[in-house]
Design a protein around this nucleic acid. Structure first.
Lengths: 221, 221
DNA sequence: TTTAAAATTTAGACAAAGCTAAAAAAATGC
DNA sequence: GCATTTTTTTAGCTTTGTCTAAATTTTAAA
């Protein structure tokens, strides 16, 4: 019922890798975890014995349903702490990952749920990754650059790829930041600029800017 | 420069024990840490080798200056997290100790200092114990029951020993709680009641009540 | 002051998690 | 289809922190 820090790190990393790769190999996992393949095999046997893994020697592994559940809990904690560090303690996004890596292993459910409430049940961490809710559910959302967002679809800014000071100045002036809720009102074919509606204003954004702003929106509904 | 969770727990516990006992014995420490005397001896050798301890076999141990410094850092983290849990996440004082026990091992200095600032640089944790500042200094304060407080000395409520609902009701009515600042104006010899001045009011308190309210005040000055 | 009791340390084992080096299985190339 | 390379696993060792049982030292008591 309770897992070591090491086990948790393996579970989390497998989860994240299998999202993109489908199945995870010994070498890939070893590299991600900065360890040796032999150590990975050892741990895989242990997690397999605990039924957290679908493991067939020489053929890679994926998480079992139970394994996924646990991994989602760890990821939830990680992302909530990242949000806390950025939005309450004023850390920059680059700094928070390593700190959250330590905090995520404090696994008390009540603590995490209260932290969630304290933060106002955020949906995304400062990097734009979705935060699983207290039941481990992740919103079925899509992350895309703003210029690809369908018109009239409510969305939320989750990431800004260009970090130049000019870009940040522009964003600041237009009052756009991580978490800003918006919706595209109109596309202009001439210069591919967009008219977007925000909470209290409607503004126009260039194609260039839109390409560097990533937003999330609900797939279903 | 970096210590394991186990080492930190030993250092913290020795520090707290030696405050009251002067020197710490193997058995006492083993009991506090819920482990066996033999394990304590093992760890003492290790901490001694790292020069964190004054250790003479069979004659107990105290922390070296360096050991104390590290212990104060751990205690600072512990008490700040306790404050956070109570005042931001609305946990009760009884609940926070175990949680803080885990959080205290996240040792990043910048994180802790920012948390401190976020909380408004509190001086006492929810149990009334003083929180060391970022340089490891603890205010030179004295904790005593209210009826022993010298007159006209500014003090702060830090602990309430009787937790009966009657007591809590009375405290609530008189608007006294942890952190309340007050000062004794007058002693009445007849019934040993006290007149105390608070921020916006002056009230009278019975001897019985005063015995159960603990306050801190600055020793020097 | 000698002896029994209590406290402390030593010796030897164990589990967790890692490592290196060697063996085995799978994939690739010709 | 066989040989070579790559990947994965096995075997055996190390460290950390724990334990039990035995030995030693200190303390207390008669």
């Amino acid at each position: 019922m309770n897992y070591t820090i090491s086990e948790e790190n393996y579970l989390k990393t497998i989860f994240l890798l299998q999202e993109t790769e489908g199945t995870v190999s010994t070498n890939t996992l070893a590299e991600k975890l900065q360890t040796k393949p032999a150590s990975v095999t050892d741990m895989m046997k242990k997690l397999d014995a605990k039924k957290l893994l679908n493991y067939k020697p020489y053929y890679g592994f994926t998480l079992s349903a139970e394994g996924k559940k646990i991994a989602l809990g760890i990821i939830r904690r990680h992302r909530l702490w990242e949000y806390f560090l950025c939005n309450k303690l004023n850390f920059g996004w680059e700094e928070v990952h390593l700190l959250a890596e330590e905090l995520e292993h404090v696994g008390n459910k009540k603590l995490v749920d209260r932290l969630d409430a304290f933060l106002g049940f955020p949906s995304y961490d400062p990097h734009g990754d979705p935060i699983p809710d207290s039941k481990g559910r992740v919103r079925n959302i899509r992350k895309i650059p703003l210029h690809q967002l369908p018109a009239l679809r409510p969305a939320e800014v989750c990431q800004v790829t260009n970090q130049s000071s000019e870009m940040l100045e522009l964003l600041h002036h237009k009052q756009i930041g991580i978490g800003t809720k918006l919706e595209i009102k109109k596309f202009f074919d001439f210069d591919h600029s967009l008219e977007i509606k925000m909470k209290n204003s409607t503004i126009t954004i260039s194609e260039q800017l839109a390409q560097n702003i990533f937003v999330t929106y609900e797939q279903d509904l």
